[in-house]
Every structure is written in C-alpha cells, then in structure tokens.
Design a protein around this nucleic acid. Structure first.
Lengths: 338, 338
DNA sequence: TTGAAAGCGCTAACAG
DNA sequence: CTGTTAGCGCTTTCAA
C-alpha cells in the first residue's frame, strides 16, 4: 500500500540510492535531481520505512524512559508528569521518539529488564527513581547499553543528574534557624531513596553548621506520602518541636492535618517547610513555604545528556546538580523575637 | 556482536527456518528439535531482532499513547500518571511496549501528527484528552490507522471509552439536593473539553429533575485549575449560593481558599463537592466530598480495546462508559433541617 | 518435519 | 554526480 524508495525512484526517474541520498541530505547530489526527487517525495507524502532503516543503520531514533518503582505511589504528584514532559519535549526537539516503561513492583526486576531489552528499538534510556544498587543499572552497565540516571548520587562510571537535594534541604532548615526556631524536627522521605537521605543530610548539615546538635529523636521517618506526614507529626509533637522540615509537600499536608486535629496553629505553634512546591501548596492555609525543584528541566537536561552520549559527544563521567529555590510563604511566620 | 538466527541455527545443528518456527511457537516441529533449539536459545540469551521482524511482519508490538494537549496543564494532577499506569501495565501484560507523545501546544497539530506517523514503529494508538474535532482524529480516520479514544462522547465510527461524566455530575449534585441545599452553584471545567461540558449537563440534569430551574447566573466557567476555582467562588458568592459543585477537586481547593479568605465556613456557609478524588482531598479540612473516577481502569480498558481492535476482535463501534463513585466526606455537612 | 530461497525496504560501499 | 549491488535479520512459501 504505502510506497517505497523504489517507487519514488521510478517516479522521479532516478535510482533508489539517489532518492536515499536526497532524503538523508547527503552531499554530492546535483541541485536539479535533488529538487526533482524532493518534489515527488512531497507529492507522494513519502517517508522511509523506519524498520528497514533501523535494520541497516542499527539506530532507531527512539529513546526510552524507565522508572523501576511504580512512580505514582512514590511521587503521587506532579513529579512524574513534569519529568516526562521535560524528557518528551527534549526528545522531540532532537527528533527522537520516546518509549516508556513503568515498573510495577509485581514483577521481578529481572523480567522487567528483559522486557525492555527484548523490545529493542531503543538507542538508549533515561532511568529515574531508582533505589540503591538497583540491579537494572548493573545490567545496563554490563550490556554496555547507553543510559543516563536521574536521581542517584554521583557514582563512579555512571552518568547522572539530580537536583541538589542536600543543599536544598540545608537552605530550608537554615531558613527556620534564621527565623529563630529552636527545636526543629524533620519528617524524612523513604530512606531507601537517595534523595530522601540527601535531604536528611542537609537537615543535619544546617543544624551542625549552626552549632546545634541534631537529636535523632526529632527525626521521624516517613515515605513521602501524606499519611506518613500525619503520623510523623503526631510523633514529633511528643518531642516538643517548634518547627518541622518535611521532605515533601505531600507530607507537609499530612503534618498540617495532624496539627489541625490537635488544635495547633501554623506557624504560631509549629512552623512548617515542605519540599516540591506542588500546585496546591500555595493554596494551603497558611500557604506552605517550600523548596521548588526544576523537575521539567531535570528531564530535559538528562535527555540532552543521553543524546550527546549517543553521539559520542558527552564528556563522561557526567554529573550535574541542578539548583533549587526556596519559596517563602506563610507557614513559617516572620522573624521571631524570642 | 549480538547473535542472529543463523548463529543459533548453526549452534543447534538445524536450519534458520526451524529456529524461527521454534521461537514463534509454530506447530510441526518435533519435540526433540524444539528442545534442542530452545536450549541453545536460552544458553545464548538470544532474542530476535525486532526491526528485522517488523520489516517482514509489518507489526511492531508497540502501542502509542498520545495526548495532544499539554496534559500537566489541564490535568495538573494524578489523572495523567494514573492513566498512563493503566495503559502501560495493560500493554505490558499483552506483551506490547508503549510509545509516548505529548502535545506541546507550541507546535501545530499538523506537524505533531507527522512526527507520530513518521516514527512508524507503532501498531495503533490510544488518544486521550482531545478537544472537540481535533484534526488529529480526522487524520487517523483518513489513514485508517487503528486508534481508540479516551474521553470524547461516543460518535459515529469512533471507538471510545470514558467515565460517565454526566451521570457522575448528576449524582454529585443530587447529593447536595438531598441534603437540602437550595442555591446550588457550579464551577465548570474548561468547556472546550467534552468532559467539562458533560459535567455541566449533569449538573443541569439534577436540578431539572428536582424541578428546579438551573439559573446560569450560578454557573462560573473555570478551567479545572486551582486559580479558576478561587475566582469562580468569588464570583458565585455574589449569587448567594449555599453549595457549589466543582468540576475538579483542584478547583474545589481554590474555592476553599476563596471561602477562607472571606471567613466563610465549609460546609456551614457554603457546602462543596469536587470531582476526581485526589490524594489530598481526604486531607483537606473539611475533607472533600467528591466523585472518584477509575482512571487507571480507563487506561487499561482502552488499551485492551485497542489490542482487540488490532487483532480484529473488537466489536465496533465500541463505546464504553465506566461508572464512578460518590465519596462522601465532610464538605457537605449532614442533612439540613431547613 | 525440515531446509532452501525469496523477499520485506533501506543504506552504503563500490564502480563508473 | 549517479547507478548497481550486497547485505541488515527475519518470516514464509515451496519443495523435499
């Protein structure tokens, strides 16, 4: 049904190879033939069969995006859409298509990996949201399959990109310190994830640099989700905190719920800082002070890095940390005069 | 580097065709050879080159998912992740891979469509979040390219699936009516989207069936997003409403913000019902009464339909409306004794 | 039940 | 500058 190179060649009165050359923009084609061929190509709405092309070039111009963890559980929020938007738009910009694999948890990583590889048809992958020592990574390394990581801390031989979680967390906590809070607690993310640990480190950094001891009794372990924020806050209230840094806005919402339930006010009784800057965060009452991350950008930069890697133009090892921004709203109150 | 059929054939002492038969599970292969071949295949970790296979079969076992609108703007929320999870997991279940295209708004639909088609490598697509008479659809129809729609109202010759927006909205508003509210307003979604209009219709249905006139002055046009909920509520307050049905939870959050600002209480001064059941909705104060939609399921069912379509096993025209669920929480209060 | 051989549509090396 | 030709790795008749 659909025409092929041969048909176009015949229609244009040239050979198959000439049409191929024209289509691929090779030099050494007379301006006249080029024009004649292009005309037929346009008229017939012809485009080369990608499978055939792939068969010989070994390139598909398709990228993959993989998240082994079932994302919507971990990042119930705009993280995933924003990331994927960044990846998608950059891929398109460089004329790549995008394939997607979401882990489901129900399936062993081993099978997951096989599904990805057997599908073939991808030149390289962006991998996000891995837990530590994800076996997936080991496989990619072993198979020498091109990939770029989003999220994990820089490591030997891996190309990766992330936001500066540790620094961002430090900034958040320093904000509380500057405002005069004395007993600052933290509700952490899911500590199996590097980002969660980095934020915890940042919290400790801030306290240490302010000459305070970071008592572990003021640290509640959460998992990024709302209920864990609620429970974490309940727990921290026994520790008499006057401010809490939450490793996600979602947990901050949970913390607020706990506070409301106890008839405590934000920020008067307990101040709150979140992390993410969700769309709703500005609409909470009080509006949440939080850390904004350039998630979309994260996806874009990772994708660009991958494409460069495929072109042999990436200076490896490649490690980038994107800066974040403290967004000050009402949940921390003004300078305390204590 | 990677082995091919020929290599495996040699290793197993059979011909290329026999290996192909074994791999594709054809009958008429002796149990003995089958076993011998499979052993070599396993040992060598062999899998057939998908491009070569596609070249001859004209099938890729790859599905596409397309959303022409830049989703994160329209559905700032879990809609997108949930939908894509449903699609992805069902595709995987049937041993299909998934490709993704997100519209960017910056690009004309014409080019968008070409990008998709030229990439080739997909057997069919699931299309979500189209506005009315999206030119994309016309193209697919014209090219006889297999697709299933998520979201639009049933239409001649198109296979589509959706939740029953109209009925769901009616249920939501009837809930308010039963509770005794008298002046029920609505903040609509982006009326260019069929789902937004269907919800508006449902609102009118409920009022009409209760023998009330649906005064348009109590309808505020929004766009699904938080700020439009805020503004819509501000406007409706002039209309002296005692309850408001919001076409999205996100707008309900905005509405709450407006109410707080005016020092009005929910539900005592104004009752609120949302639509979506976001994770945070249960955590609002008061917790939001809302409509829960089976978004993940929507993706799954659409994908299954597409796969059946590809297998020539779909009874067309195919139109399905998935049921929703009213989730009653605190934002509507108890039965009023008026 | 198995093998030989013909293509699927394209790129690229080689001649001319 | 252009055409001829040999594959890329697989499926699928057709014979045996």
């Amino acid at each position: 049904m659909s025409k092929n190179l041969e048909d176009i060649a015949r229609l244009a009165g040239v050979s198959r190879s000439t049409v191929s050359r024209v289509i691929n923009g090779h030099p050494h084609v007379s301006e006249l033939t080029r024009r004649r061929v292009m005309e037929v190509v346009k008229r017939e709405g012809f485009f080369p069969n990608p499978a055939a092309r792939t068969l010989v070039t070994q390139r598909t111009r398709v990228l993959g995006f993989i998240t082994p963890q079932a994302l919507p559980d971990v990042f119930a929020d705009p993280y995933f859409p924003a990331l994927i938007q960044g990846i998608s738009s950059t891929a398109n910009q460089y004329d790549y298509a995008l394939m997607l694999w979401l882990g489901e948890g129900t399936e062993e990583e081993e099978r997951f990996y096989h599904r990805i590889r057997q599908t073939g048809l991808i030149d390289g992958v962006v991998v996000a949201s891995v837990v530590d020592d994800d076996p997936l990574i080991a496989h990619f390394v072993e198979d020498r399959f091109p990939f770029v990581l989003i999220g994990p801390p820089p490591r030997e031989g891996l190309n990766s990109i992330d936001i500066d979680n540790r620094h961002a967390a430090r900034v958040a906590v320093e904000h509380l310190i500057h405002l005069g809070y004395q007993r600052i607690g933290m509700i952490t993310g899911w500590l199996k994830m590097p980002s969660a640990r980095a934020r915890l480190d940042g919290y400790r950094d801030a306290l240490r640099m302010a000459g305070r001891s970071a008592s572990d009794s003021r640290i509640a372990e959460g998992n990024f989700l709302e209920p864990s924020g609620y429970m974490g806050m309940k727990m921290l209230l026994h520790q008499d905190v006057d401010a809490v840094f939450c490793a996600s806005d979602t947990m901050a919402v949970g913390a607020m719920r706990a506070l409301h339930e106890e008839r405590l006010r934000v920020p008067d009784d307990v101040a709150l800082v979140g992390f993410d800057d969700l769309p709703i965060s500005a609409a909470l009452s009080p509006p949440l002070t939080t850390i904004r991350q350039p998630i979309r950008r994260l996806g874009s930069v990772a994708t660009e890095a991958l494409i460069n890697l495929l072109d042999g133009a990436l200076a490896t090892p490649y490690h980038v940390l994107l800066p974040t921004e403290l967004v000050i709203r009402g949940s921390c109150g003004a300078l305390l005069k204590r």
